[in-house]
């Protein structure tokens, strides 16, 4: 436990290369190995101080794992390591064709919800997944190969739109359930 270093970056923590392309199997193996060492369950019989430390370490490992596992959070984190802010709150300038496509997708989800059409919703969800994967592939290219971090930040802003749409689709499913 002495070797646990809070100041390591998340990639380093899991012994992974600092790049967007992810060895997800490797991440999972490392995550479990780390939690097996630091989880509070391992020190439940020790002093309060030990337990507090375990909670902090385990919290950090969970945070690091969730950050790297999520494509959008991983990109955001990686860009922050390169001192690039994704400006998701402030930079709202988007290509008009992207915005139009987003509007259409939203309307299609809304229409599926109104018509209580599960298969139409499935279709939109599948569509969104395809688009998201394509953006992620582009992101990998921009970060790992071209190393154009400003362009990557723009892609993250697009991904944020997709993420919000995914949330809307999820709540539409819940609503159709009732």
């Amino acid at each position: 436990m002495q070797s646990f270093d809070f100041s390591k970056d998340f990639f380093n923590l899991f012994g992974l290369n600092r790049c967007y392309h992810l060895d997800s199997a490797g991440l999972e193996v490392q995550f479990r190995a780390l939690q097996a060492r630091v989880h509070p369950d391992k020190s439940a019989h020790l002093s309060d101080a030990e337990q507090r430390l375990a909670m902090q370490r385990s919290t950090l490992v969970n945070e690091a794992y969730q950050t790297l596992k999520s494509p959008i959070r991983r990109a955001r984190y990686l860009l922050s390591l390169h001192d690039v802010d994704t400006q998701e709150e402030t930079n709202t300038v988007m290509p008009i064709d992207f915005l139009m496509a987003q509007m259409e997708l939203r309307e299609a989800v809304e229409a599926a919800l109104q018509a209580q059409d599960i298969s139409a919703l499935d279709e939109q969800a599948a569509h969104l997944t395809t688009d998201t994967r394509a953006l992620e592939a582009e992101l990998a290219e921009q970060i790992d190969t071209v190393q154009n971090y400003q362009a990557a930040a723009g892609l993250v802003r697009k991904l944020r739109f997709m993420e919000k749409l995914a949330e809307e689709i999820a709540s539409a499913y819940d609503e159709l359930d009732n």
């Binding site: 479990r32 939690q35 097996a36 989880h39 369950d41 439940a44 019989h45």
Partner: peptide, 18 residues
């Protein structure tokens, strides 16, 4: 079973609960 593990009665087949 979990109490036994948490109390520190560790055995060879240790497990992790998330």
């Amino acid at each position: 079973i979990q109490a036994n593990l948490l109390a520190g009665n560790r055995s060879s087949d240790d497990w992790l609960l998330l």
